[in-house]
C-alpha cells in the first residue's frame, strides 16, 4: 500500500520557493531516505506531510486518500531531531504522557525498563533516542517520519536503533528518514536527493554510486555526486 503519494508539491514563502514541484512516494514496508543540503526544502516537505504547513500547490495524499492534518497525524509517528522529550520527567513519565495522548496504556519498555525511573536529562543520548522512538511507536503508526534518527550515538546504539526501524518496516510501516549522513543513507532502501526545492536524484545507493564502490570510497563517491548535483542546481 502507498502511504505517501505527493505530486507536484510546491511551497512558496513570499518570493522564496522552498519546495518546487516535488513527487514523493513511500510504500508500506520501505525505508526512504531524504537527503539535501541545508535549505534544500527537506524540512518544509516533512512539515507538509505532517500537516503543519499547507502546500501552495500540488497534491499530498496519505494512507490512500487522506489529506495531511490532525486526523492523518494519528497514524504517523514523528521523531524530531531535538527528540521532543520532557527533560525533567522520567523515561516512564514521558512515555505514559505520550501514550495517554493517544488513549493508550504505557507500551512495553523492553530494555528501557531498567531506566524507567531516570530523568531524561540524566540519560545518554542513545537512551534518549530509544525513549523518543518508543514514544513515537507507542500507537503503532503506519508511517514513521524521522529527522536524523541516529545522530550522535555510538555504533552499537545506532545498530540497535536501526534494528527498531527495520522491525517497524517489516511489520508494515513506511519510514521516511531525513539525514545528512552516509551511514544513515546507506541503511535506506531508496534515496531521494533534494536541491533548491526539487528532487534532483532518486534511486538506491547502488544505482546512485555504482555497485562496485566499497569502503571509504563509498562516502567520497556519494558526496562527489551530491556536490555535482547541488552545484548544477
Amino acid at each position: 500500500m502507498t502511504l505517501v503519494r505527493a505530486r507536484g508539491v510546491r511551497k512558496t514563502f513570499a518570493t522564496f520557493t522552498a519546495v518546487d514541484g516535488v513527487d514523493l512516494s513511500v510504500a508500506s514496508g520501505e525505508v526512504v531516505g531524504l537527503l539535501g543540503a541545508n535549505g534544500a526544502g527537506k524540512t518544509t516537505l516533512m512539515k507538509m506531510l505532517l500537516g503543519l504547513t499547507t502546500p501552495t500547490g500540488g497534491i499530498i495524499e496519505l494512507f490512500g486518500g487522506e489529506s495531511p492534518g490532525r486526523h492523518a497525524r494519528e497514524r504517523i509517528g514523528y521523531v524530531p531531531q531535538g527528540l521532543g522529550l520532557y527533560e525533567d520527567l522520567t523515561v516512564g513519565e514521558n512515555l505514559e504522557f505520550v501514550a495517554s495522548a493517544y488513549g493508550l496504556e504505557l507500551p512495553p519498555l523492553g530494555d528501557l525498563a531498567a531506566h524507567r525511573g531516570l530523568l531524561v536529562q540524566d540519560l545518554s543520548l542513545g537512551l534518549r533516542r530509544r525513549t523518543a522512538f518508543l514514544g513515537a511507536l507507542a500507537h503503532n503508526p503506519e508511517l514513521l517520519v524521522l529527522d536524523e534518527p541516529t545522530s550522535g550515538v555510538d555504533v552499537l546504539a545506532r545498530s540497535d536503533l536501526w534494528g527498531t526501524i527495520r522491525t517497524a518496516a517489516e511489520s508494515g510501516a513506511g519510514v521516511l528518514v531525513s539525514t545528512h549522513h552516509m551511514e544513515e543513507a546507506d541503511e535506506c532502501d531508496r534515496l531521494i536527493v533534494m536541491a533548491a526545492g526539487r528532487v534532483v536524484l532518486a534511486g538506491t545507493m547502488s544505482e546512485i554510486i555504482g555497485d562496485a564502490v566499497g569502503g571509504t570510497k563509498r562516502i567520497e563517491s556519494f558526496e562527489k555526486r551530491f556536490a555535482e548535483l547541488a552545484e548544477a542546481t
Binding site: 541545508n38 545522530s151 545528512h180 552516509m182 556519494f222 558526496e223 562527489k224 551530491f226 552545484e231
Partner: peptide
C-alpha cells in the same frame, strides 16, 4: 561535520 550538509562537509 555535525549538522553540516554533504556539500559543506566535502
Amino acid at each position: 561535520s555535525t549538522g553540516v550538509d554533504p556539500v559543506s562537509r566535502k
